[in-house]
Amino acid sequence: MCGGATIWLKREDLAHTGAHKINNAIGQALLAKRIGKPRIIAETGAGQHGVATATICAKLGLDCTVYMGAVDCERQKLNVFRMNTLGAKVVPVNEGQATLKDAINEAMRDWVTNVRDTHYLIGSAVGPHPFPTIVRDFQSIMGTEMKAQMLDKAGKLPDVVIACVGGGSNAIGAFYPFVEDKTVELHGVEAAGHGIDKEKQHCATLTKGTPGVLQGAMTYVIQEESGQTLNTHSVSAGLDYPGVGPEHAFLKDSGRAKYLAVTDDEALEGFKMMCEYEGIIPALETSHAIYYAINWQRLCPRIRILLST
């Protein structure tokens, strides 16, 4: 089916709480403890980062508040339940589109008000410096492990590393340790929603956005000419964001990484294939990368692909 090529999966879904988000949550929670901040706030899209944050806060005895778009609360109900169970307070955000971007705005408002005792445990590689680099560093454990495991199992580096990009924490963590390995191609997969040609119906920031400032970082942004942010859409809450981590903007502009977009329907096809052929139920976010990897591999057989889930 895949033209004889090999796809390796980096199974971050098997990490505690079910996503790579825990890598960063533990790191930043320890940081907060070290600098003496007893209260943690976080934003979440799909709810994975919220659950990871709630988990580590329970473990370390930190007070935890999670901002989540009201629309996302509805479509990711189970994660709201998990966060509440873990003792976190989930605050639904009704502003704007009531998705990830608005949850970040609300968390920022909380943070500027309570900065003395509060650490904003940001979940994606976005926001003001040094957040994008903090998140990258904690998440780059993924790429570091991928590299070691590939050398161990396959004897050489992969030809391509593929990861989905919303804010971009998963992708930057996977890409970063490979940036200097010029033989390894880096491909980021964005969400094209109903199609990148339909305004307000996608969130393919790097494909369709223009340079701008959003939430404290200069990066690509899906925006009007006047600079107001446009609405976005994706079937997956975790990718539904009009900005992207600034280091992805740099990797795109420098040509080191390629970014492409996959629609909702295609992602669902990837999801189905992974379930039916491998017995793995992937996240909708990852499904974008899965579809892309399978499709791309049909064109380029006999390569080793490493897919970060």
């Binding site: 704007g96 920022m108 408002r109 959003l214 939430q215 600079g227 107001q228």
Partner: peptide, 27 residues
């Protein structure tokens, strides 16, 4: 007016939104 006024409280946030909706979007 700005679509993401994240240092603004409810009042200013609301006024930004209304201004944008009523056609004032940029410089």
């Amino acid at each position: 007016p700005c679509s993401e006024p994240f240092a603004d409280g409810d009042t200013n946030k609301e006024s930004h939104k209304i201004a944008i909706n009523n056609g004032t979007t940029g410089m």
